[in-house]
Design a binder for these strands. Sequence first.
DNA 1: AGATAACTACAGCCA
DNA 2: GTAGTTATCT
Length: 772
Amino acid sequence: MTTSADFLSKLNHSQRCAVEHFCGPLLVIAGAGSGKTRALTYRIANLIIYNKVNPESILAVTFTNKAAKEMKDRLDKLLAQEISSKNYKQPFDSLSEFNQKKLLSFIYKKTTKQLWIGTFHSLCARILRYDINKYQDSKKRKWDRNFSIFDESDVQNILKNIILKQFNLDEKTFNPRAIRYAISSAKNLGLSPEEYLKEHSYSKGRVIAEIYDEYQTQLAENNALDFDDLILIPVCLFQDNKSVLGYWHSQFKHILVDEYQDTNRIQYTLIQLLTTNGKINKNSWNWKNRSIFVVGDADQSIYSFRMADFTILLNFQAEFGDGLPDDDTKTMIKLENNYRSTENILVAANNLIYKNSQRIDKTLKATRGKGEKIYCYKADDEHIEAEFVISKIQELISINSELSWKDIAFLYRVNSQSRPFEDILVRKSIPYTIVGGFKFYDRQEIKDSVAYLRLIVNPYDTVSLLRVINSPRRGIGKTTIDLLLKASQELKTSLWEILIDETSVKTLTGKSSKAVLNFVHMIKKLQEKSTELVSTDIFNQVMQKSGYIDDLKRKETEESDNRLENLQELYNAMNQYREENNDPSLQGYLTNASLASDLDNLENENNKVSLMTLHSAKGLEFPVVFLVGLEQGTLPHIRSLNNPLSLEEERRLCYVGITRAQEKLFITYARERSVWGSKETKIVSQFLEEIPQNLIDNHTNIIPEKSSWKKNNSMDNNTKWAVGDHLVHYSFGEGEVTHVLGSEKKVNLAIKFKNLGRKIIDPSTNSVTKIF
DNA sequence: AGATAACTACAGCCA
DNA sequence: GTAGTTATCT
């Protein structure tokens, strides 16, 4: 195998081993900032260029659509460099503009376009567009290739209807959200309604199984799938149908999975089926020209709420690999060199994550300078916190000419924490972008127009049909709709089939029938056109013919103007999709839209401060990071406080946050925070206390005299504390002092609480009251 | 049938 | 606080 030395010269030894891996299984344990994306990208390039692997036979699973896009872009650049130096004997940049363009379009056509790179969901949706007609479930439910993908609110609609209207159940005992979670979990374990029933034969479980069964029926009636089905159905199809599995097994010779620690059972089963062709006996696997290559870091596993299970990563060696110990194995490589952060940041991160019991030992090794201490700030409340953070970034920007807005990120636990930061950023006209959060596709006008498009592709999609049948208002009211729905239920046909029969509509609805028939006529016309027009043209037609645009224009309010702008933006997004993916089909766009979280398209080009949750921050890095809201109940999140395993996951989240920082890390927390409109006193996060104090510079705005506590609390601040004192903590309850740490000026207490074990608490924050 | 007022449950992270 | 739903009025 000849591999260009230049190509690999930018890699360290471990990275190079990973990149040069050709056949068989390989697990890459990649710590934060160890260059794992680089290893993945280089390996794909290496497979294509030097191992002459057909791009079509490479399946690369990323965690987000954005990561997929980035990987494709990086690959384009890398391939351009390599091919340029091979074929033209000069670097890509020195080629003429014409040759650059020619080369890039050649690479796109021959390579990047052929690759299967995407999330589990998008890749599975693509597989299902070919083969879903070959599947039927145990109750003979079937779907066709025009299936809709229902988002969470569509799913909630259906489930609420089943639970409250059809089954007449009590909302308290059968909370739709909880039921949704149960069904989703079942699907992620690969359980059908019947299998779920077997495992939950108690009374409530039986009802949930029935709801699940009815839910599947309704999905099938709508020719629709939810997110979980996108993965579950391919798995079921592969298990039922050996020839379909055989086809895809021989298609995908090299399978790569990024963020393997966040894979769940059903995703694992999918990978396993594709890799082994469903053969259970390890000795019968043929690794010739075939590989499974997974990259992950158990310390960054933060999706257990989505059924992610990092023991899958821990079991890779036993399931696929040689199972030998770390020093002898040929199927595992550890990347421990960190190229991202300064040493202080890494030491803090390492010390924090050591506190977890569930992990494989791994230490991030610094390759850069020591760096600055972590700047820690205690604010009086969340507004002061935001004031501090923003005045700090203004200060940093003004004294450091190299630094710009895009180098700065604010990371928080929950989306609602962004509010105070946004307010001040707006006031100070600092450009910012919120990653994730309120989603573009959740807006009413976007959902409406997407529903029109879904209906055109898939007329069985009754959820979309009901959404648009009377919006804009066209005189088809509740009574009319109820009559039609009742008829469709009695005749056991889809609503659309009732609607397209003119006589039925006339008999059923009398004087409203004209409006209904007009609507049906319009949709039919658009369906006919949809075969000849490109997606963007259909969109324009829909918006005009439906009267949606006119309706908004007539209103002339600020809100309607805004909606019109959003629709324009949707048009742009469709156009962009069409050009980038060379896919003029409406269905292609709709799949993309259902799976896209938000429009993070033109992000990097704009110089803006980034605001996002810790979950969204995974995989990113910033020179300056503000990790905000480090309080018990915020991070760690309140719902994890009484569960050791969730607490470990919160610690991993905090670890992810810390390791995003390249140069400077700021950690802030507030004494008091508004939650649901009412104020709550907070205490500092245990995670902050788990970081060695010598790495931290502490600051605060709180002057003891000013603290609001003084005004309405007679307890003085100078309580003398001694070992054996009994006290009450406002949230941990009763406890006993076991150690008094520090001296006169700054005392900390080690307190043994009744059921919670020992904690270290600062009594000057007045969170504790002495009893005796 | 549609608009408006009153009421309630609520927000944890995501493809 | 808000979003979404229900009750009441026109």
